[in-house]
C-alpha cells in the first residue's frame, strides 16, 4: 500500500470534506500544457489526481474522453513520456497530492508490468486504475504492483452482484471506484436512484475509502453522493472544461465541486 492515498482521504475528512478525485488526460492538448491542467486541478481543491494515459481503443470511455485520447495520441503522448515528462513535474509542484495512472491494460503490458510498477513508483505514482482489468484477470498484475508499492484500485459496477461487490471491496487497495451508471464515462443529468444503497453496501465491506465516479459533473451531484461515499471522481466534465476554456476553467470546476463536498 502506498499510504499516500489513505493520507489524502484522511486530510479531506479532517477538514470535514468528501475527497475530490479529479481526472484529466495527460498530453491533452500536449504533455507540457497538461501539466498546467493537473496543477490547476490541485489548486482548485482536488485531493487525488488521476492521470489519464491515452489508449487507441478506449472501450470504457464516452465521447469526451475518446476525443481527449485522440488529441493526446496525436500530440505524441505515451506511457513512458507521461512518466518522464508529466508525473515528476506535477509531483514537484504538488508534492502532497497522490497521483493515480488511469489507462487500459494493453498500455501497461506493452511497457511490461514490472517495469511499469518500478518506474511508476520511482516517479511518485501511488496507484493505477485499469477499467478493462476485472478481478479474475488481475491477480498476477496486482502482486507485481503490491511488491512495488503501487495500489491497483478496483472498480465495482452497478451490475456487480452483492457478494461479488463485497469480495471486491474486502480485497481492495487504495480505494474502491464505484461506477455509478451502467455505461461509459461521461456526464449524466441524473444518477441511478439505487446508487446510494450500493455505495453503502460497498462501504460497509471495504477497509479502504469508497468513491463514486462516471457521470458526475456538478456540485449538487457531489453533495448528494458525499453522504454515501468518501469522495467522488470527476473526469469528463473536467476534460471538457480544460479543452474548451483551459486550465483555469478546470480549476474553477474543481472548486465548485469541492464546495458540494463540504459536509
Amino acid at each position: 500500500m502506498s499510504g499516500e492515498i489513505a493520507k489524502a482521504f484522511a486530510r479531506a475528512k479532517a477538514r470535514g470534506e468528501g475527497a475530490l478525485v479529479a481526472y484529466a488526460m495527460a498530453g491533452d492538448p500536449d504533455l507540457a500544457r497538461s501539466v498546467e491542467v493537473f496543477t490547476a486541478l490541485v489548486e482548485g481543491g482536488a485531493d487525488i489526481v488521476e492521470v489519464g494515459v491515452a489508449f487507441s481503443d478506449p472501450i470504457a470511455d464516452g465521447p469526451v474522453i475518446q476525443g481527449a485520447s485522440e488529441r493526446a495520441l496525436k500530440a505524441g503522448s505515451t506511457l513512458k513520456r507521461v512518466l518522464e515528462e508529466v508525473v515528476p513535474e506535477v509531483r514537484r509542484r504538488c508534492p502532497e497530492t497522490p497521483l493515480v495512472i488511469m489507462t487500459y491494460v494493453n498500455v501497461i503490458m506493452a511497457m511490461g508490468e514490472e517495469r511499469f510498477a518500478k518506474l511508476a513508483r520511482e516517479r511518485g505514482v501511488s496507484g493505477a486504475i485499469l477499467p478493462d482489468l476485472p478481478p479474475e484477470e488481475s491477480g498476477a498484475l496486482r502482486a507485481t504492483f503490491d511488491a512495488a508499492g503501487v495500489d491497483l484500485i478496483p472498480l465495482c459496477a452497478p451490475t456487480t452482484p452483492r457478494a461479488r461487490a463485497e469480495a471486491i471491496a474486502k480485497d481492495a487497495r487504495g480505494f474502491v471506484y464505484c461506477v455509478s451508471v451502467a455505461g461509459v464515462t461521461g456526464m449524466r443529468a441524473e444518477l441511478p436512484p439505487d446508487l446510494s444503497q450500493r455505495l453503502d453496501l460497498v462501504r460497509n465491506a471495504s477497509p479502504v475509502p469508497v468513491v463514486a465516479g462516471f457521470g458526475i459533473s456538478s456540485a449538487e451531484q457531489a453533495r448528494t453522493l458525499s453522504a454515501h461515499a468518501d469522495g467522488v471522481v470527476v473526469g469528463s466534465a473536467i476534460v471538457r472544461a480544460a479543452h474548451a476554456d483551459g486550465p483555469q476553467a478546470a480549476k474553477a470546476l474543481c472548486a465548485e465541486i469541492k464546495r458540494g463536498l463540504k459536509r
Partner: peptide
Amino acid sequence: GGRYVPETLVPA
C-alpha cells in the same frame, strides 16, 4: 483468451 472487459460486463 480471458476476459478483459469493464466490470459492468463481467456479470453479463
